[in-house]
């Protein structure tokens, strides 16, 4: 379980990182390495070069704006958990980060890395989609921005183009009274979820979003969610078409987790 040979580069800027990726199509960016590391060791990933972006100042930047916060892609889960970066929500991000894997993973794992890895059962893709986050991308043909639900195309699949990297994620500011319900069903603490659902209810802004993760493919995203919050059975058809109703017990699992997330809107709206 040792990685195959690879070269290692540590560019100083986003432009250099992009150039390195363009120059070598078999190169791969790495930040915290919490997903890529094991894949390297199992030789499932065999990049020619690892382009280490974890310390690039542009990816470590945090920019607070009136309408939200733009986080550099290399901000770690632990930095969210510990509150060392500002939070445009009433404490939701620290709470989410606290539940990601284990502290050792959170110390190194990055928000950008999690989004790029695009595991449908991971915490950030589901919860940040529910919060209406957008990703900032930089590539050989410039920069662009995508809503997270447009970036995440399916299990382990994103809209990233060749040579493109995620530079940041923008999380919109919530009103003070916004409520967030998040539930995941995991075999044990820190494991990837078998079912998960995140719900945002921000009445002041008129934003109601519900996202179902741990799907076989793309997340189930409901952007106008007031109706399903009142009657979650309206989701049954979408669960079925996402392949989550193949057997009765799986359907019951997802339904239960969805209803728990909706119930949690009322019980866990404020940070602890």
């Amino acid at each position: 379980m040792k990685a195959a040979r690879f070269d290692y580069r540590r560019p100083a800027t986003v432009a250099e990182a992009v150039a390195a990726l363009v120059e070598d199509g078999a190169a791969k960016p790495v930040a915290g390495g919490q997903s890529l590391g094991p894949m390297l060791n199992l030789r499932l990933a065999r990049p020619s070069t690892l382009v280490d972006v974890a310390k690039i100042p542009g990816l470590r930047r945090v920019e607070e704006r009136a309408d939200g916060v733009l986080y550099g892609a290399a901000i770690t889960h632990a930095e969210f958990e510990d509150g060392v970066v500002p939070d445009p929500t009433p404490g939701f991000l620290a709470r989410i980060a606290h539940g990601i894997a284990y502290r050792a993973v959170r110390n190194r794992g990055t928000v950008g890395g999690s989004l790029v890895h695009a595991d449908p059962a991971a915490d950030w893709p589901t919860t940040l989609t529910a919060l209406g986050a957008r990703v900032a991308l930089a590539g050989p043909s410039g920069t662009r921005e995508l809503a997270l639900e447009d970036f995440l195309l399916g299990a382990f699949s994103t809209a990233l183009e060749d040579g493109e990297i995620v530079t940041g994620v923008f999380v919109p500011r919530c009103s003070a009274g916004a409520r967030f319900g998040y539930r995941k069903s995991c075999r044990k603490v820190g494991e990837f979820a078998e079912a998960m659902c995140a719900v945002l209810a921000d009445d002041v802004r008129g934003v109601h979003r519900l996202v179902i993760g741990a799907t076989e493919g793309r997340h189930i995203v409901v952007t106008e969610a007031k109706g399903v919050l009142a009657d979650p059975r309206l989701l049954d058809e979408r669960l079925a078409s996402a392949g989550l109703a193949a057997d009765p017990s799986t359907l019951r699992l997802h339904r239960k987790v969805i209803s728990q997330a909706i119930e949690a809107l009322n019980s866990e709206s404020l940070p602890a």
Binding site: R187, E194, L253
Partner: peptide, 15 residues
């Protein structure tokens, strides 16, 4: 007795 086994048995009984 994994969650999968427990919920499958419960679902089978309930269905």
């Amino acid at each position: 007795m994994t969650p999968r086994r427990v919920r499958a048995a419960v679902a089978a009984a309930r269905e």
